[in-house]
Amino acid sequence: MRIWIDFINSPQVSFFEPLINELTKSGHEIVLTCRDSANTVDLIKQRNWEHTIIGTEVKKTTVKKLLAFPLRIYALLSFLKNKRIDVAICQSSFYLPLTARLLGIPSIYTNDNEHALGNIPAFLFATKIFIPENLSLSKVVKMGAKRSKVCKYPGIKEGVYLWPKGVDIQSKRATKDFSKHAIYVRPEPSTAQYYSGKHNFLDQLLLELKEHHPITILTREKAQLAHYTQSAFSGIEVPVKPLPFEEVATNCALFIGAGGSMTREMALIGVPTVSVYQGELLEVDRFLIAEKLMIHKSELQYKEVEAMIAAKASQDVNMSLINKGKEAYQLFKQAILKYNKQ
């Protein structure tokens, strides 16, 4: 079977990694396209996946995004028209469902961000829609999803791909010495359509923290990399390439996240996590906060971080979400294989 997957942002690479690995080993062919945005291409290259880059990151204005949408659809159609695709699947690629519909192939779409406007065309044209169990069905219906298309999966999106690594990382963390209090920071998703919060708002906190703790900033794109490699931030580690997830999750004493996916990944895996996201929280974030797996403070102060570190910011690991992730993974795999014609 020939399966098309489209990536338009970094977190989607991790989401599909276990599925791509298993399906490839089973003899299925993956046709992979991606948009050159954030760390997406670097992450794909780390995994040595064959891929085709179609399109680049779009500047954050509604007009430019609207103009870029049909141009990328046309480019995808031109590339895929003779590829004999059996089924298409994506996580948050708003382009894929419409392209698949125009090509006459079934598509599977999943998203856990109820604020993303790109859901509207995606819900309309997708053959099947997957949402996490904590996302209200009424919210996706209001954005145009037909109830008959929607399937809820157990747990949260991050569990779908972290379940194979979860137990191993947790066992490594149990023997780790966190006395050096390594803090990892993920800045805000400044170019995302849904983000309307402040930019570089963590700067003062980082300048205070770096005098007392090892800090690593996991930037999203070139502008952030340029900003945090200025002399004012000397002493802070700013990797040019994305770090392996296992490295961050194993070594992190405290994670401060101004965005979504990586913050939820760390919370799920048992890393003490503080969300400083400036926009309206998603239902999945509220769920993690209610489960006491994550703290949310839109304005985080240096003294608060020190208090968390002094208290070791410890929390229990909710293994039920890891187990649910495995169940959700099987649902996605079965949905794809349903279209196997052999």
Rank of each mutant, 00 (worst) to 15 (best):
T229V: 06
T24F: 04
Y302F: 14
P244K: 03
P18N: 06
Y228K: 01
I236E: 14
C90N: 13
L124Q: 12
V271M: 07
K297C: 01
L135Y: 00
V87S: 06
K341Q: 14
M319A: 02
T250P: 00
I20R: 06
Q330F: 15
N134L: 13
I269V: 11
E114N: 05
L282N: 07
R186N: 15
G144F: 09
T127L: 06
H181S: 11
P164A: 06
V248Q: 02
W49T: 08
K64V: 04
F130V: 02
L76G: 02
S78I: 00
Y74A: 13
K128H: 10
G155V: 11
A310C: 00
L205M: 08
P239N: 04
L137C: 11
S234T: 14
R47P: 06
K333Y: 00
A311G: 07
F332T: 06
Q301D: 14
F245N: 05
T33R: 00
I30R: 00
Q342N: 15
G55N: 06
N48Y: 10
T263A: 15
G166W: 10
G235W: 15
T219P: 03
S298Q: 13
D168E: 07
S298W: 04
Y339M: 01
L102Y: 05
L77T: 01
R186C: 07
A192C: 12
G235F: 11
Y74E: 11
D86G: 07
I108M: 03
L98P: 03
I295H: 12
S196W: 11
V160Y: 02
L218A: 05
F94Q: 15
V274Q: 09
N200Y: 14
S10V: 00
L103H: 03
I30S: 08
G325F: 07
M308R: 12
L32R: 05
A116G: 02
L300I: 06
N82E: 10
H115R: 14
D285Q: 14
S148H: 12
V271P: 09
P106S: 11
R35N: 05
P70F: 00
L96C: 04
E237R: 10
E29W: 00
T24C: 00
D177W: 04
K324G: 03
